[in-house]
Amino acid sequence: MEQSTCLDWKGYSRKAISKEVLTHEEAMKVLQAPDDELLLVMNEAFRVRKHFFGKKVKLNMIINAKSGLCPEDCGYCSQSIVSNAPVSKYTMLDKETLLAGAREAMNRKAGTYCIVASGRGPTEKELGQVIEAVKEIRETMPLKICACLGILSDEQATRLKDSGVHRYNHNLNTSRNHYEAITTTHTYDQRIQTVDTVKRAGMSPCAGVIIGMGESDEEIVEMAFALRNLDADSIPINFLNAIPGTPLEDKGRTPAMKALRVLALFRFICPDKEIRVAGGREVNLRTLQPLSLYAANSLFVGDYLTTPGQEITTDHQMIEDLGFEIELCAL
Rank of each mutant, 00 (worst) to 15 (best):
Q3V: 14
T5Y: 00
L7P: 08
L7H: 08
K10V: 11
R14W: 04
E20L: 04
V21F: 08
L22V: 07
T23Y: 01
E26Q: 13
M28A: 06
A33G: 07
D35F: 11
D35W: 11
D36I: 13
E37H: 14
L38Q: 11
A45Q: 06
F46M: 13
F53S: 10
G54N: 10
K56A: 09
V57Q: 02
V57A: 02
L59N: 02
N60I: 06
E72G: 12
D73T: 14
C74F: 10
C74N: 09
Q79G: 08
S80M: 09
I81L: 08
S83C: 09
K89N: 07
T91A: 11
M92V: 15
D94F: 02
E96P: 04
T97K: 13
G101K: 01
E104H: 04
A105H: 04
A105Y: 02
M106N: 02
N107A: 15
R108L: 12
K109W: 12
Y113P: 00
S118G: 05
R120K: 14
G128K: 07
I131V: 15
E132F: 07
K135L: 09
K135A: 13
R138P: 00
E139M: 13
L143V: 08
C148R: 02
R159Y: 04
K161D: 03
H166G: 09
H166L: 02
N171P: 06
N171H: 05
L172H: 05
N177V: 12
E180N: 15
T183R: 13
T184D: 10
H186Y: 13
H186R: 14
T187M: 14
D189K: 14
D189H: 11
I192R: 07
K199A: 05
G202P: 03
G202N: 05
G202H: 10
S204F: 00
S204A: 08
P205V: 05
P205T: 05
C206G: 04
M213T: 08
E219G: 12
A226G: 03
A226N: 12
L227Y: 02
L227V: 04
R228S: 03
L230T: 02
A232Q: 00
S234K: 01
T246I: 06
T246C: 05
P247D: 05
L248G: 04
E249C: 06
A259P: 01
A259C: 10
A259M: 03
L260T: 07
L263R: 00
L263M: 09
L265R: 04
F266L: 00
R267I: 07
R267Q: 08
C270R: 05
D272N: 14
I275V: 11
I275Q: 03
I275W: 01
R276Y: 10
A278T: 04
G279D: 01
R281G: 07
R281S: 06
V283R: 10
R286D: 14
T287M: 14
T287S: 12
Q289W: 01
L291S: 05
Y294T: 14
Y294W: 12
A295F: 07
N297Q: 09
V301T: 14
G302P: 08
D303R: 08
Y304H: 09
T313Q: 13
T314G: 05
D315T: 15
I319W: 00
L322I: 08
F324M: 12
E325W: 07
E325T: 13
C329F: 14
